[in-house]
Design a protein around this nucleic acid. Sequence first.
DNA 1: TCCCATAGTTCAGGAATATGGAACTATTGA
DNA 2: TCAATAGTTCCATATTCCTGAACTATGGGA
Lengths: 106, 106
Amino acid sequence: MRPIVHPALETLSPEAILHALSDPERAAIFAEIATSECVERCSALSQAATREIPKSSLSQHFKVLREAGLIRSERVGVEMRNYSRGMEVNGRFPGLIPAILSAYGF
Amino acid sequence: MRPIVHPALETLSPEAILHALSDPERAAIFAEIATSECVERCSALSQAATREIPKSSLSQHFKVLREAGLIRSERVGVEMRNYSRGMEVNGRFPGLIPAILSAYGF
DNA sequence: TCCCATAGTTCAGGAATATGGAACTATTGA
DNA sequence: TCAATAGTTCCATATTCCTGAACTATGGGA
């Protein structure tokens, strides 16, 4: 299993972010992560799995969000914790994330 | 040749907009249309064609932008005029378009 | 320690989308 | 009517996406 990689803030691209969030499922997942205040129970894959998406697909969705720089994932025991990088991203692309989430109604 | 259709403002979806603008080529085309003040020479396909994109691809790009509700196209004589619907769209999804254009550096 | 359960990843193929050359359509002007 | 210009459509190829099945990683017993 290859190690989890998180792109540096400077290397993020608008196209990757827009692409990641142009899928409503992924947008919903991200919104859930981004709007939950907590640090402890921030949307593990299993939680998102309450939707009816195959876990391989979910895994891909998280990968796309991660590689776009929107989330940070870390393994905690047997599960994966996902945190929003929204604040960081907002520093680089001001207003982008809020506008997108708001457009979706999140 | 089927008639040009423009979706009503109420039927626009964030995913279609994000998808349309997640392609840097399309984003550049839209930016050119959206930021040009003029009404008369608003980016016909031939102008965009200064880039090295095949015209069939350009035609598809304009179609995607049109169907996402980002531009309005009308035929004027032998050519096509494309206008930004950015203002309208901004009424529906406030801040979205500006944030995207700014993220791209346009 | 070995085994099992849980959580997630990777792989592989089929489905869906995108790309672009070639042929076609529409409009204008001579 | 014909030629030129501007754009669209078609279709074959290429790329990307989806997801079931197999695999990997970690933790908790017995």
